[in-house]
């Protein structure tokens, strides 16, 4: 059982990140996965998180107990979920957006900046996903390459795939 928490603001693609990896796992890697989301009443900008479980067995209890990875794209998301991460778990942060004082292992990638270099910060979550997948090996690269085009608007498929590769290379 792999337990991953994505946290950030509404509009950053936090829930979408969970969906893409979950889809890759359950449709293309033939594993079980459950994605749950939490968001506020705001359309954008409110605190937002998704929890993703990936397992070889059927998932009965569908929530995180202690997370293996926390992917934080906002300071608030980091503060709220840092304690949930296992002692030997890993934090993955966008280091332009998050300051950390955690004693746990921290990995950093300026995903928003990389996305801006690619043309738009909207791709930051997919850059982050490239990094996350290489580090966590949560799903196969092939599965991600199939899941991304299914999960984004058709005209942005190429840009998203490029953003994913950038993050993957960065790792």
């Amino acid at each position: 059982m792999l337990e991953i928490r994505f946290a950030g603001f509404g509009g950053q693609g936090i829930i979408r990140s969970g969906i893409i990896v979950g889809r890759a796992a359950s449709i293309y890697d033939n594993k079980y996965s459950t994605m749950n989301q939490a968001f506020g009443p705001e359309a954008r900008g409110g605190a937002c998180s998704s929890q993703l479980l990936i397992s070889d067995k059927k998932i009965l209890y569908p929530y995180i107990t202690r997370s293996d990875y926390l992917v934080a794209m906002s300071q608030e998301g980091y503060s709220k979920f840092e304690s949930e991460v296992k002692d030997d778990g890993v934090l993955i942060i966008d280091d332009d957006l998050v300051n950390t004082d955690s004693t746990k292992k921290v990995l950093k990638i300026p995903s928003t900046r990389i996305a801006e270099e690619l043309g738009h910060r909207i791709f930051a979550n997919v850059v982050m996903l490239g990094y996350v997948i290489r580090v966590t090996k949560a799903v196969s690269l092939e599965a991600m390459r199939k899941a991304i085009p299914e999960s984004v608007p058709e005209r942005f498929v190429d840009k998203n795939l490029k953003a994913f590769e950038k993050g993957y290379e960065y790792a």
Partner: peptide
């Protein structure tokens, strides 16, 4: 809401 917003295969 939990089942409504839970994503699975």
């Amino acid at each position: 809401e939990c089942v409504g917003h839970m994503t699975e295969k």
